[in-house]
């Protein structure tokens, strides 16, 4: 299916991005990115998933101008990367963020606000709002040195939003957070989209991706393996059809070729393989006097798709 996307509608456009490193002594070439191409539309939540070492963080650091690509190009909100202009409208949370541990959160936000050129009174107002929003009001006077990992992550989110960015790039934003913290970050990401922002985030946690993203890209070994909406990624492959019927007599040969057969009193549940002729099977069940309770295609989960894509990337020499 072809999608027509105007450049003006893109928050992020990455074209054939490549990055090679040399190991310090052996000078062995390591290809961290091997032609990554994708687009993120404005107003979307885009999940970037992949195993450790897949190239997620390298891609993000390249977009943020921390790493220079070996080749390829990228634009952020139509502005070429790397450039100061591109970074002006972006908020960024690095992976496991490290801050100046002698600062308090208001001091950190003041520093970041100054770098964005936000005037003094507005800087203070915005910092106060964000501290409240990320739930750090009671830790205002504490040095970041005394913060737990979860608190640091919240401070990181606050600084990423200091410039009221159009695009928010979050590298593993749920890392180090407890389930409540993760839920709060998910809600924050959703509220950013509701406010018209675009959110691009990397994660390992697939349930978060399924829950909140508009589009997902799976990266492994420095290459994009698949991308689409979560529904598209899993709809491409129906694994089986789960059927439940109410029998009036014996099941007979209805269970032939079926999987996961369970019978509870007059109810029979089973799974037919994706290749099975479901209409013919249902006709046979009707003929046997059975009443159909439910017929549901079972799709591949995002996790299963993810594992399959990663395994297939790993299998390539």
């Amino acid at each position: 299916m072809y999608r027509l996307t105007l450049v003006a509608d893109l928050a992020l456009a990455v074209r054939d991005l490549r990055k090679s490193f040399r190991t310090p002594f052996a000078r062995k070439k390591i290809e961290a990115l091997r032609g990554v191409t994708f687009e993120v539309q404005k107003g979307h939540i885009f999940g970037f998933v992949g195993p450790n070492g897949a190239g997620k963080t390298t891609t993000i650091r390249t977009l943020m101008g921390l790493i220079k690509p070996t080749s390829g190009s990228a634009t952020i909100l139509g502005r070429t990367v790397p450039s100061r202009a591109a970074r002006e409208r972006v908020g960024f949370l690095p992976e496991s963020p490290y801050f100046y541990d002698y600062l308090t959160v208001p001091e950190l936000l003041d520093l970041v606000g100054r770098l964005f050129g936000i005037p003094g009174p507005e800087r203070k107002k915005r910092a106060d709002e964000l501290i409240e929003r990320v739930g750090l009001s009671r830790a205002r006077t504490q040095n970041l040195k005394k913060f737990s990992k979860g608190m640091l992550q919240r401070a990181g989110l606050a600084q990423a939003l200091m410039n009221d960015p159009e695009l928010v790039v979050l590298d593993e934003p749920m890392s180090g957070l407890d389930p409540i913290g993760r839920k709060e970050v998910r809600d924050l990401i959703l509220s950013l989209r509701d406010a018209g922002k675009t959110v691009f985030f990397s994660t390992h946690i697939l349930s978060d991706v399924e829950a909140i993203t508009d589009r997902v890209a799976i990266i492994a070994r420095g290459q994009l393996q698949a991308s689409g909406t979560p529904a598209e990624l899993v709809a491409q492959s129906v694994q089986a059809v789960d059927i439940t019927i109410r029998l009036t007599g014996e099941a007979g040969d209805l269970t032939a070729g079926a999987d996961q057969v369970r019978r509870h009193e007059d109810e029979l549940s089973l799974s037919l393989p994706a290749s099975a002729d479901v209409d013919a099977w249902l006709a046979k069940a009707h003929a046997a006097g059975a009443k159909v309770i439910s017929v549901a295609p079972r799709h591949e989960t995002l996790e299963a798709r993810f594992l399959r894509e990663v395994a297939s990337a790993e299998a390539v020499p």
Binding site: L66, A85, P94, L115, F116
Partner: peptide
């Protein structure tokens, strides 16, 4: 200490 990641990703 990677504090540069926070700073260099800003418009500086």
């Amino acid at each position: 200490r990677r504090t540069i990641h926070v700073i260099a990703s800003k418009p500086i």
